[in-house]
Each structure stands twice: as structure tokens, then as C-alpha cells.
């Protein structure tokens, strides 16, 4: 070993390799926290939901199964996104690993991006696994229902019954619905990241994130009132404007409740909705970086 000139290659302004190293390490860090136990809970929940509906028609059974599964996916990915993101920075600061990383030639942008991508990756793995479990159970229940129908339904009505069962289980709009669930959780994660660059404690970040989540679902009402109102006072109008301008419209990313009951989403509408989600994610990340880049560590 010699202490000659530095061996690192010439410094790159942006290095995907560094971002990948941080992102994969973040994913590993989160996975090591055993966050995937919730998958077990998810499977139990959706299998358990069938006990309540055994007396119902197959349409009702499948609908409850889908509602519970997609509802659970929404809440789990959201919780995962918020909790994982809220602890990202504070944990690295507390353990001083942040210092060891930023003392290397790593721009803060890459550090933050790597961390955020790690969370997005985690959410992706989580929602993929849940979708897998959900589809397997749905398929098993469908096969069960088809077999029962073949046994019990008289021949002349059988074809129609089988078609009804198939129609009640799989629906091609489920997939875009699940993509929107993912984007919504990613948006909430980006928002949490932004809040955590402002905040000094994870608890504050989490509480703020939950509040924004709740208000976000009724933001559309404030916007509508703001855009329509002529009669309200200036004070009310200012309040409505602040809610509409600062809080994200999460209702626009809540489509799955309607999709489960058979609502179709056109490609154009899906692309528009997804673009809105992606724009939010991008802006929140960049603003978060803007604050983080000058943060005293």
C-alpha cells in the first residue's frame, strides 16, 4: 500500500452506480427490519375475510375478497411508505452512518435519491408480493366456485353460471387499479421524505404525514369550493386556497374502490392519473432535496 495519488476514477457529477449502491443497501436495511411480516397478516386477513361471507352469493364473496385485499394493499403500502421513509434520515443521522457516507465523494442528491429509490423498491416488492398472494387466492377461490357450479348447477344454466363466476373474479381493470395504489403510496412516501427534511423528529414527520393523508382525501372538496365560491368571505377563501394549493389531491388517486365493483378505466384516463401521481412524486422529491441540500447535519 502506498499513499500515492487517489485511486478513485475522476469524479462524476451523477453516478448511477453510487445511487444503486445506496438504494440496494436501503432496501436491504428495510428488509432486515422484518417489514415483510405484514405479508403474513395480509394473507391471514384476506383468507379470514371469507369466513364472514360463506353464506353469501359468489358475487358478494368475490367482491368482499377483492375489497378487503385491495383495501389492505392500500393501507399496508401507505403505512410502509410513511413509516419507512420517516425513519430513513433520522436513523442514518443518529447512527452517524450519514456522516460516513457524505464524507465520501457522494453528492447529497445521490444520497437522497438512493434512499428514496430504496423505499420505492421496497414498496414495489411489497405490492408485488401482495398482488401475487391476492391473485393466487382469488384464482383458487374461482376454481373452487367453478367446480362447485359444475357439480350443482343444472346443465342448461351451467355455461352462463360459469361465465358469471369468471366475470365476478378477474377484471382487467384491477391491474391499473393496483398501479394507482402503488403510485399513491409512493406519493405519500415522497411527501414524508419532504416533511422529514423539514422536521427534527420522526414522530412529527409521521403525524404530519397522516394529517396530510386524511385532508388529502377531501382536498378536492376544498378546491371545488374555492373555484366555485363567490359568496364566501375572503378569510374562508384564503383558507380553502391554502388547503387546495398545499395539500395533494389524494382522492384523484383513489380509484380502486370503484374499479372493484366493475368500473372501467380507459388508457387515457389511467395515463393522466398516473402522470399526476408521478409529477407529485417528482416535485416532492426535488423540493425535499432543495431543503436537504443545505441542511446542517
Amino acid at each position: 500500500m502506498t499513499a500515492a495519488a487517489p485511486i478513485a476514477t475522476k469524479h462524476k457529477i451523477f453516478s448511477p452506480a453510487r445511487v444503486t449502491a445506496i438504494a440496494s443497501n436501503t432496501l436491504l436495511e428495510l428488509v432486515r427490519l422484518k417489514v415483510f411480516y405484514f405479508l403474513l397478516l395480509f394473507a391471514l386477513l384476506i383468507i379470514g375475510s371469507s369466513f364472514f361471507t360463506s353464506k353469501f352469493t359468489f358475487q358478494e364473496q368475490f367482491q368482499v375478497l377483492k375489497d378487503v385485499s385491495l383495501g389492505a394493499m392500500s393501507i399496508f403500502t401507505w403505512l410502509l411508505g410513511v413509516l419507512a421513509t420517516a425513519m430513513l434520515l433520522p436513523k442514518d443521522i443518529e447512527d452517524r452512518t450519514l456522516y460516513t457516507i457524505l464524507a465520501k465523494p457522494v453528492p447529497r442528491f445521490e444520497y437522497l435519491l438512493g434512499k428514496f429509490l430504496g423505499v420505492l423498491l421496497l414498496l414495489f416488492v411489497a405490492i408485488s408480493l401482495m398482488t401475487g398472494v391476492f391473485l393466487v387466492i382469488l384464482y383458487a377461490r374461482q376454481q373452487d366456485a367453478l367446480a362447485n357450479a359444475a357439480r350443482l348447477v343444472p346443465a342448461q344454466a351451467l355455461q352462463e353460471q360459469l361465465a358469471d363466476i369468471r366475470a365476478a373474479t378477474f377484471n382487467k381493470n384491477l391491474l391499473p387499479g393496483i398501479v394507482i395504489i402503488y403510485l399513491k403510496s409512493a406519493l405519500c412516501a415522497a411527501l414524508t421524505l419532504l416533511l422529514s427534511t423539514f422536521a427534527s423528529s420522526s414522530i412529527f414527520t409521521i403525524i404530519m404525514s397522516v394529517i396530510v393523508y386524511l385532508i388529502g382525501h377531501i382536498q378536492a372538496i376544498a378546491r371545488e369550493a374555492y373555484l366555485a365560491s363567490q359568496t364566501t368571505t375572503a378569510l374562508t377563501k384564503a383558507f380553502l386556497a391554502i388547503v387546495a394549493l398545499l395539500i395533494p389531491d389524494l382522492n384523484s388517486l383513489t380509484l380502486v374502490d370503484d374499479i372493484v365493483v366493475g368500473n372501467a378505466i380507459s388508457t387515457v384516463l389511467f395515463v393522466k392519473t398516473a402522470s399526476l401521481g408521478l409529477t407529485y412524486i417528482g416535485i416532492y422529491f426535488l423540493v425535499g432535496y432543495f431543503v436537504f441540500s443545505a441542511k446542517e447535519l
Binding site: L194, F198, A220, R223, E224, L227, A244, L245, L246, D249, N251, S252, T254, L255, D258, N263, A264, I265, S266, L269, K272, T273, L276, T279, I283, V287, F290, V291
Partner: peptide, 29 residues
């Protein structure tokens, strides 16, 4: 940062209002 968020809010507002209409036309919400 807060100012940027407000500007972003103002830019997205008409788009979101329009999207909401389209969602409603497709029987969402």
C-alpha cells in the same frame, strides 16, 4: 420550499379540476 409548493399547487389546480371531471364522467368518485 413552501412557496414552490404553493406555485405547484396553483399549476396543478386546473389540471386536477379537469381530471376530476373526467373521473366523474367515467363514473369514479
Amino acid at each position: 420550499a413552501i412557496l414552490v409548493l404553493l406555485v405547484f399547487g396553483a399549476v396543478r389546480m386546473p389540471f386536477e379540476a379537469e381530471l376530476e371531471k373526467e373521473h366523474k364522467a367515467a363514473y369514479f368518485h
